[in-house]
Amino acid sequence: MSPSPQGTLLHIAERTHWESARDTGVSYTMSTLGRTLDEEGFIHCSSDMDQVDGVLGRFYTGIDRDGLVLLTIDVALLDAPVRYEPAGGELFPHVYGPVPIRAVIDVRSLPENR
């Protein structure tokens, strides 16, 4: 069963990579912590905050939250397809291409470890 299409996706970004893309106007191409779109083949995203919390707990322990931001991506503004694929018993959205700066409609700090 595939999830219903949603208007936005969430992506955990390293602040320096996001700010560099934003400041230069170049599409964002980091997939996940320390890995690029070219290396992974897609950009890892989450459907909701529950998935974000799970990803933070599994892959971002020990990472200073001040160095991370949460991007909200407007799916309608993407030029690349989004596929929902299984990982760890859940379906996660993956963006199969760069994220244009205009598609990032919100940037916020991440909550501290719980």
Rank of each mutant, 00 (worst) to 15 (best):
T36I: 13
E90G: 03
H17G: 07
A87Q: 13
T24E: 07
L37D: 03
D38F: 15
S20F: 10
T24Y: 07
L9E: 00
H44D: 03
I63R: 15
P5C: 00
M49R: 06
L68Y: 11
S27D: 14
R58I: 15
Y28S: 04
S47Q: 02
S27E: 07
D53Q: 10
L56Q: 05
S46C: 09
E14S: 12
G62T: 15
R22V: 13
P100H: 12
D64T: 11
P3I: 02
Y96G: 00
G34V: 06
V55P: 00
G97C: 04
L37F: 15
G97T: 02
D74H: 09
S109N: 13
Y28I: 03
S2M: 05
W18G: 12
T29A: 10
G54E: 14
G41N: 01
I12M: 01
T72Q: 05
D74T: 08
L110P: 11
M1K: 03
S20V: 10
T72K: 04
S31A: 15
G34Q: 12
P3N: 02
E40K: 13
L110W: 10
Q6T: 08
G57Y: 15
V95E: 00
F92H: 07
L10W: 05
N113T: 15
L70N: 01
T32D: 13
V75I: 08
R58D: 08
R102W: 15
L78H: 05
L91C: 03
S47L: 03
R102H: 15
V82W: 09
